[in-house]
Design a protein around this nucleic acid. Structure first.
Lengths: 222, 222
DNA sequence: ACTGCCTTGATTGTATGCAATTATATGCTT
DNA sequence: AAGCATATAATTGCATACAATCAAGGCAGT
């Protein structure tokens, strides 16, 4: 009985999916035994998967206590978005300069696909989510800096952040789709600064939907 | 006999130190058995440590083959520096706005300490390295976004990058020290854009010392 | 009733054993 | 002698066993 895939990856994927879907709630105590049983393996691969997830920030490991799903505050989310703005706008500018024809074609396709779905009467949000992820992934790929992808992944793989668009109303979805299209145009034009600017608006919209008005003045009320 | 520290952390620190010091060369095959023996533990905690190191990018895990110390090309280093420029300049600007008095004081102290050492006849490079790391760490802390610290850590913990200053000549060291001082002044003045600009120069100098003249035109020779 | 200690149960951390896989060496064929 | 197949050794991946540690509840003393 050959094991097609490795138990560690199985565990890793399963736990991450649980976190992403929300079935493993922030703060939840992940006991190795239960996880092991649920994926039909022993604790050893589960523990290795948890180490990886901890390094990626999705869980927190406390010595002799175990693993807990990471929690994040509004402040955390603001900070994540600040970094996303920084990194993704860089990625956009970089993509404008470095993307090849295949990348450009795919980005155009995805942006138009999203735009079409969003204009439908009752948009298939699940599909928009998928295409949206794919769009951003393709963009990172197009900029030719894989390390940037890893950095961004560690910022965007929180469930709250992945499902931002669910908070958009119809207007928000339409705006998002238009931004995608404009971004593709900027990239096709090799206009790095245009791409950067569009991406900044794009992420700031998302931030706004999640945490409300800008963070320009929080705290410091001495 | 109580174990003061956990074997996993022992293994993690030991392997990372080996990589940082260069005693574990890029490309080297890290066999779990040998590592376990060298730290006086079993393979289980070593494997967990390797998972973490893999997630952080310091080693590469190949299924059924084991762990290899990551190698990086000139291209990798260029890309790492692009991201460092982006993130550290953001950190500098952010620190200018958010640092508290304790941070500012410590940064001033570190910058002056470095400046003093560097001006000596035969500077203690080991100590400069330490203070330099501390300076950058304090800066990140001052900007109040811990996630940024983790992101940067994953970029700067390669041995080649940590020991950049070894490649500096006397001029380079002096320049670097002056940049630190200017940066502190900018932060004390709460001048975010000044701080950002100084940091950009600072990192670009380092990049220059490592990979030579800028990457403005590589590839694309169709 | 309340506090502090101890016992018990659950869980983590580590070591070890064994099957599966890969790398290396050996011998056979041409 | 070169190339391929096979055998052997080394190593990984996983499961399990056991010790160490932590959380919870009960019991004595005040």
């Amino acid at each position: 009985m050959s094991m097609r895939t490795h138990a560690v990856d199985e565990a890793y994927g399963s736990i991450r999916a649980g976190i992403a879907s929300g079935s493993l709630e922030p703060g939840a105590h992940l006991t190795a035994d239960r996880l092991a049983e649920s994926i039909g393996a022993s604790r050893t691969p589960v523990r290795e998967a948890l180490r990886r997830l901890a390094a990626e920030g999705l869980v927190q490991l406390i010595p002799n206590r175990g693993a807990f799903v990471s929690e994040y505050s509004a402040q955390d989310i603001r900070q994540i978005y600040e970094l996303r703005i920084l990194l993704e706008s860089f990625a956009a500018a970089s993509a404008a300069e470095n993307a090849d024809d295949a990348n450009r074609k795919r980005l155009r396709f995805l942006a138009e696909e999203i735009s079409n779905i969003v204009q439908a009467e009752s948009p298939d949000l699940e599909r928009v989510a998928l295409l949206n992820s794919e769009f951003h992934r393709t963009l990172i790929e197009a900029c030719g800096n894989p390390r940037l992808g890893k950095l961004l992944a560690s910022l965007t793989e929180y469930p709250l952040i992945q499902s931002t668009f669910r908070r958009y109303g119809r207007d928000g979805l339409l705006r998002s789709a238009r931004q995608h299209l404009e971004l593709v145009t900027a990239i096709e034009d090799r206009d790095a600064e245009w791409a950067r600017a569009v991406m900044i608006s794009h992420i700031r919209s998302a931030k706004h939907a999640l945490v409300g008005p800008g963070p320009e003045e929080q705290g410091d009320a001495a």
